[in-house]
Structures are given as C-alpha cells and as structure tokens.
C-alpha cells in the first residue's frame, strides 16, 4: 500500500555538489511565490561542496511536512545518472523520472578502481518501473544554449516538460528571469527552452 498526500506535488532532485540544484529549487520557489502556491523545500547540504551527494526535496501545494512519505514522489530528477539509480527506492509506478546522462565519476571510481554503472542500463532499468523516463544530456543542451554552467536550468526545462510541475512555460520563464543575475538571463532562458524541447520531442516520438 502506498501513501500520498492528495494535494501536493513532490519533486526530489539528486546530484553532486556544484551542479546547481539549489538554484533550481530557488527558481521553482520563486515560481510558486509568484502565484501564491504553498511550497516547502528541504535541503541536505552538509558537505556538498566537497564532491558529496546533494539532495533537495520540493513540495508544492498543501502539505504538512517538508519530507514526504517514501511512496509519495511525483518526479525524481537525477542531475547525475548514478545518483538517480542510487535513489531508485523512491520510485513508484506513479513517479516520472528525468535523468541527465552525463556521469560525474566519484573518486571511488576514478582512483579507487570501482566500476561506474552503464548509463544506458540505468535508464532501461528505471523505465521498467517508473511511470515515464526522460533522459537528456544537460551538457549538450547547455553547450547549445551557450554556457556550460546552465546544465541545471536545462534540467529544469526537461522536468517542466513532463506535465508534473504545476507551472506554465511562461510562469517558469518569469521565475528564471527573476532568479538569475541580469547578464545570465538570456543564456538561462535558452537553456530552459532547449531542455524542455528535448523532452517534448522525445515524448512526441514515443
């Protein structure tokens, strides 16, 4: 049996320190504030800057708790493919999964001789159980947008294309504009729409 808060959308972002997940949660926060939608964001940033795992949980709508039931996840966003797989226990048959396919190898792999999992296999495993899985190379999209530092906003674009997050394209666009420094607005807006288009195209083909 699974338990869900009936009125809330729960987003769980996993990634590696420095990937900009915090900025994404702030953009979503501003989008929610703009339409007076209740929001609560929970972050674990203990040692993230030192290459550790970053986890952010965002809950939109009426909730009582910053942490959801483990069976209550609307969308899992893997900023890094292996971290998405590490969080697999949070996936239910109702969970949409968005994965960035660009690996960041931990030191246990680069110097410790351990094996990094096959990204294709991660995606095919997750697609067996999740409601839908979308994968993009955020680096490719950020490069197209014109700044490699916008991979996070590319992922925001991708997750916004899954019909889970309760914001229109325009609302998110406005939130990006109000959240990033003036001189980076254009490149982030490009990354947002390219990320969104990448998922929408895939969804059309399926």
């Amino acid at each position: 049996m699974t338990f869900k808060n009936r009125d809330a959308v729960t987003i769980h972002i996993v990634g590696v320190g420095g990937q900009g997940a915090l900025t994404v949660s702030k953009i979503i926060g501003n989008a929610a504030l703009a339409k007076d939608m209740p929001i609560v964001i929970s972050e674990i940033h203990g040692m993230a800057q030192r290459g550790g795992v970053v986890q952010t949980t965002i809950r939109l709508g009426e909730t009582s708790s910053p942490l959801p039931f483990s069976s209550d996840l609307s969308i899992l966003v893997g900023f890094e493919p292996m971290e998405a797989y590490r969080a697999r226990d949070k996936i239910t048959k109702d969970t949409v999964v968005v994965i960035n396919t660009d690996p960041i190898r931990p030191v246990s792999v680069s110097s410790g001789g351990m094996t990094y999992p096959d990204v294709i296999e991660i995606i095919s495993e997750i697609s067996k159980f999740g409601k839908a899985v979308y994968s993009i190379s955020a680096i490719d999209i950020a490069r197209q947008a014109g700044d490699l530092r916008t991979t996070n906003v590319a992922m925001l674009g991708a997750m916004s294309a899954c019909n889970v997050i309760p914001f229109t394209d325009e609302e998110l666009l406005e939130a990006v504009r109000s959240s990033v420094p003036e001189k980076f607005i254009d490149v982030n807006v490009r990354s947002l729409s390219l990320g969104r288009d990448a998922v929408r195209e895939k969804a059309c083909r399926e």
Partner: peptide
C-alpha cells in the same frame, strides 16, 4: 492497521560506488 509495507521493485543490482565527500 493499514498495510504500511512499501512495495519495492526488483531492481537489478547495478554498481553504485559510494560518493563520499573528499578533499577538493
């Protein structure tokens, strides 16, 4: 009481090497 066990899927055992914080 309601059944609180979480139905888990049979995930394939792919390697997920640890990612501890490290000196930069």
């Amino acid at each position: 009481v309601p059944d609180l066990t979480i139905g888990s899927f049979e995930w394939k055992d792919l390697p997920t090497p640890p990612r501890p914080p490290v000196l930069c």
